[in-house]
Design a protein around this nucleic acid. Sequence first.
DNA 1: TAGCCGATAGTTTTT
DNA 2: CTATCGGCTA
Length: 727
Amino acid sequence: MNTSLLQGLNPEQLAAVTWPPQSALVLAGAGSGKTRVLTTRIAWLLQSGQAGVHSIMAVTFTNKAAKEMQTRLAAMIPVNVRSMWLGTFHGLCHRFLRMHHQDAGLPSAFQILDSGDQLALIKRMLKALNIAEEIIAPRSLQGFINAQKESGLRAEALHAPDPHTTKMVECYAEYDKICQREGVVDFAELMLRSYELLQRNEILRRHYQNRFNHILVDEFQDTNKLQYAWLKLMAGDNAAVFAVGDDDQSIYRFRGAHVGNMSALMHEFDIEAPIKLEQNYRSVGNILMAANAVIEHNAERLGKNLRTDAADGDKIRFIAAPTDFEEAQFVIDEAKSLQREGRTFSQMAVLYRSNAQSRVLEQALFRAGVPYKIYGGLRFYERQEIKHALAYLRLAVNPDDDNALLRVINVPARGIGARTIENIQTAAAEQGISLWQAACGMGAKAAKVAAFVRLIEGLGTQAAVSSLQEMMLAVTRDSGLVEYYQTQKGDHQDRLDNLDELVNAAVAFKPEESVFEVLPEGAQANPLFPILAFLSSAALESGENQAGEGEEALQLMTVHAAKGLEFDAVFLTGMEEGLFPSEYSLAERGGLEEERRLMYVAITRARQRLYISMAQQRLLHGQTHFGIVSRFVDEIPEVVLHRLSAKTKPFNSFTDAPKIKTRVAENYDLPQDYAGFRIGQNVRHAKFGTGVIIEAVNKGESARLTINFGQHGVKELDTAYAKLEAV
DNA sequence: TAGCCGATAGTTTTT
DNA sequence: CTATCGGCTA
């Protein structure tokens, strides 16, 4: 056997890679070579003949991670990666559902709803049900539905404790009905459908359980309950689950990640002890020391300490800037001086807790003429012009897609106004048919609608005989979208460029590579297959954030977005109480520990140099906030800190910040105080009468209260503005 | 039907 | 403060 695979691995990594074919949990600290271990294990399993390509499944969370594994694996051994089940949870579930769409109760051309589509559908449904947005906020319903699905729960299985929840559950049921009728599936549904199908269909279950002997999972700490249950079903008694994760980097609890899955895995898969990868190859000693010291303040840990052979390196530089503007200036000055020392901007990152903080930085950078790139804006496939074009394509293959129809029936404007659309909707509701069918039934009464119907019919006919590229061209041209953006006032060259880019993407698209392992019976014969595959991949692989990667620019992003990345130098900005840790997190049980893990992630992004900064005064939501330094900074040992002093006037805590809120230490048992109110309390409002506080969030000195005023509806009020008296 | 204005809300995010 | 959205008016 070729042993070169294993060369250069440290003893811990070697143990993990060559672990016998049993389940294992690998606790891989930041920068400990996690991806290397994962890919090398796959290569080793294949090369040593312990497993065949088709008996291995490898699951990740992001397409980026999946792609990276794919390339690294291909570089290690000659392997047909395509025939392997390597992909994201959602990607694999999608493949599974396409292959077994009939058993899953889905039409062969089912489409995927991204979160925007999902929200649009929910809004439409609430309107149709005559439920005001004040009673049920679309966003909260969306969150509710997704959370239920991610816990594996259907509407029928839910017991509502109160009238409000009862309504939400009813909406959930109705929502699923609509999705089924329209042949669309949201992200959570991809997982839940697959899970349910595996659970009830013994033949399928047996087949997959026999097939997969090795299931490898990346970022296991981020799995939610449903994903874990799905993994268990796939594994059966047969497969070895090799899970790699880091409980200290679990920062996605707010979207359902369940760290408890790690201990559950240990119990349920008879894992005696986790394999720990504690050797860090990324950061210098001082940075690592800071990271270790901070994370040690967390009580709920599996326990792990990073070590390094690297030198101590520079100390961490901390500065308390008087204002957010001066903080930005500091970042610029330092970044420039680092550049003069020979470092490149693209190897420096500016991190912040929330996107809103990027504004000041951006302005300052722009003025200083420093090139920068912001991550986390709109993604390519989420841009309106792209969604418009894809909606036409969707209608071509499935005109019953009401979402798509509503999106483009009057874009570009073709004289079909709100009135007409309402008529179509009424007709559709009365006859229980799709909007498309209703529109077709309008006949000669509405010439403009008829023209639209003809347009879509034309595209549909073309779809059956044209290639994907031809279709894409036809869609952008015949729909009138290109002309629309050319003639619209204002410069829409970027949108036109994006439409061109979309055509390019269609040209470059290789359907057989993206979606299916082996095409299911009949799929190959389906002329629509490339289009279906393209639409699916557009929804599932929302694409890189922006074009122009590799540019020489300073990298700006949230701490969340920085996970998995590393930089020579990192600027960690906005280290103020209330911002980081965020005020919101403090109200939640375990919230502070999650914030601290976020801090840990932030620190460990830096290879050689770390700057931490705060602003004593910052403009937030149009109001001036006076901040005190984050408790996390105090948790960093003084010996690795180098405190820089601001050049300008020192901050006077007495005159400048008369009312810094004294914060109660984290205490879960005391009822939370929200500017003198608490949840469940009865209050009176001059206009809305009496109500009960059902939710509350602290916002600095004030609090945002969600109050149910009965027949006046549910309102969100801020104690800073609303006059409320306790009853 | 389209464009304008005022109200409103405003962590973190991948699929 | 500012982006977004819904409702209202021309």
